[in-house]
Design a protein around this nucleic acid. Structure first.
Lengths: 209, 209
DNA sequence: CCCTAATCTTGACGATGGAAAGAGGCGAAA
DNA sequence: TTTCGCCTCTTTCCATCGTCAAGATTAGGG
């Protein structure tokens, strides 16, 4: 009954295998090219096998998106910690920018998944786990802003959270969609991203004082 | 020429009709729910009729996206003009914010089309018309920034263009995806959007001087 | 040792995108 | 005017898709 690591019989870890193959497939073919059958094929099972683990293809996508949000939150926290450790003069501002770096890095590393997570389709699925995971990311944003401008009014904080979140999300989105820096090198793009984070942080700080 | 009862064998305006029904279908069903056959059905023709006008379903989507960019550019210019006419103290700053308002208004009015335009899928299609239309929107951004801070360095201008574009695009994207303002009223959301535009414009102005 | 229930396979259904072939109608050349 | 070519649309067909309904398989409790 209680198998901690889930050790079913025929395949073993079909659910995990489907999530793994599905994630790769998503990055390869994009949202429109994603098919459940190809997913099953890559996991080495028949086309109807996924039905037991996922009620529908949307269920699988929702789970992928939810895990993506978890991973995104982890990437943000990790990079924020790393930035804070560097011992900048202002730790909270460093964390804010670090979180932005983590956000962008995750998006750049998982462009199709990132798009799925923030897609209208994902929004349509009613998956509580997905909504909760997304909320966690938003909470990280709010907390980072709170740390930088703790004495500002609630309205200012909200507006700066809007602002910071929008800048970072918008920049990396436009970049991934090819709307920014067509022929620029990866190094140049990183510089542009960092410059954007600086301007964002400066605006937040100013609004708080 | 108009036979309302008996459909003529030759539709006459099938291409336009498909684009119209396709656009409505896109907003209704989303990118994943979009089908060529339903498109044809709504235009009153057989499922293979679109083949002559569009080489593939991606061709149709590319055309929809390209026209979306044209419309977006028009919305931006129109709203910028309207803002400038209001006689603000600084006309160029007013235009910049007005363009942002036009951008957001178009996105809010055509959420699915907007997402298609900025989707990885659209990016995959090699449609020169699409790329050109997107470039026109980017040029509008750059021009608005140029007008506000004409004496700044090229690098500053680029970074502020990044910043302005990212803020506006990110905010409206997150809003449409339900990541911002879950229970807020439409009025409150507009206020948040305007506040964001103010903060954005202020940052640009400060960076230029 | 066997029996139940969870897991996976096979097969089927309607729907999709696209190709192929045929039918219908417009307009230019005779 | 008549004829013929070409563009447009329909019909038919195919491989694939998601999902459902059965049947097969096997793990593990009784």
């Amino acid at each position: 009954m209680e198998r901690s690591k889930a050790q079913p019989y025929h395949h073993g870890q079909l659910r995990e295998a489907l999530l793994t193959s599905g994630r790769a497939l998503l990055e390869e073919k994009g949202i429109r090219g994603f098919t459940l059958r190809e997913c099953a094929r890559r996991a080495g099972v028949s086309h109807a096998a996924p039905a037991y683990h996922f009620a529908s293809i949307d269920d699988l996508l929702a789970e992928l998106a939810a895990r993506g949000f978890d991973e995104l939150a982890a990437a943000m926290t990790a990079e924020a910690d790393r930035s804070a450790d560097k011992g900048a003069e202002d730790a909270s501002t460093g964390r804010l920018m670090g979180q932005g770096v983590g956000y962008m890095a995750f998006a750049a590393g998982n462009p199709a998944l990132f798009q799925l997570m923030f897609s209208r389709e994902a929004n349509r699925l009613d998956a509580p786990a997905l909504a909760a995971a997304a909320e966690k990311v938003r909470a990280l944003h709010a907390a980072a802003i709170e740390a930088v401008i703790p004495h500002a009014s609630g309205e200012i904080k909200q507006r700066m959270a809007d602002f910071a979140g929008a800048s970072v999300h918008g920049f990396i989105s436009l970049l991934l969609e090819g709307q920014i820096g067509g022929r620029d090198s990866s190094r140049a793009l990183k510089a542009r991203g960092l410059a954007l984070l600086s301007a964002m942080a400066e605006t937040v700080v100013r609004a708080g004082g």
